[in-house]
Amino acid sequence: MGSCAALATLGASLRGRAEAAPAAVDPQPQTMPVSLEINGTRHDLTLDTRTTLLDALREHLDLNGSKKGCDHGQCGACTVLVNGRRINSCLSLAVMHEGDSVTTIEGLADGDSLHPLQAAFLHHDGYQCGYCTPGQICSAAGMLSEVEAGWPSHVTDDLTRKASLTDEEIRERMSGNICRCSAYPNIVAAIRDASTKI
């Protein structure tokens, strides 16, 4: 990894230098090695530092289940689980995830048997075009662990108690996932149903 070694040398030489700030120059594109565990398999990649986690998944690993709706954290279509937590993969750089474990929609099922959320979305028709669905399902998986861990939400009346998963709680906790087809009633039904089976 030549460019990375160069980067490290550059870092060391700059660190050695006194306060004087060098004049601004537009840096050349930089690449770096990144190692990610994705759906249980380790991947060693060399990526431009600008690559988002979403682009790493879609463009470099052919995992195009995670969708790019807005690329600005506004729609939730890119939601994946990182170390078990749901995040927007479009607003995170792949290099920031060195060593992290990522679960995408492709990794939720157990072999041929669907994850309970996937089965419930099918059963309840929790989509129309399906574009938001991978993000909805990954988000719901993360959200259910948050409820399990006792995290409150904006609609939880008593912050000191563990909230029960009412439809109002599901809607609030899933508000970061937009569905342009407005399949919301069936999405809520699917999540409510799956929550009893996980």
Partner: peptide, 29 residues
């Protein structure tokens, strides 16, 4: 394009930020 640094200590982070032209810390991003 930008150079990416992952300092290990608080002091290294602050020092790097002063040394590099137009540097930014990134947290959640």
């Amino acid at each position: 394009a930008f150079a990416y640094e992952r300092p290990a200590t608080v002091q290294d982070a602050a020092r790097l930020a002063a040394e590099r032209p137009s540097a930014r810390f990134i947290a959640g991003g």
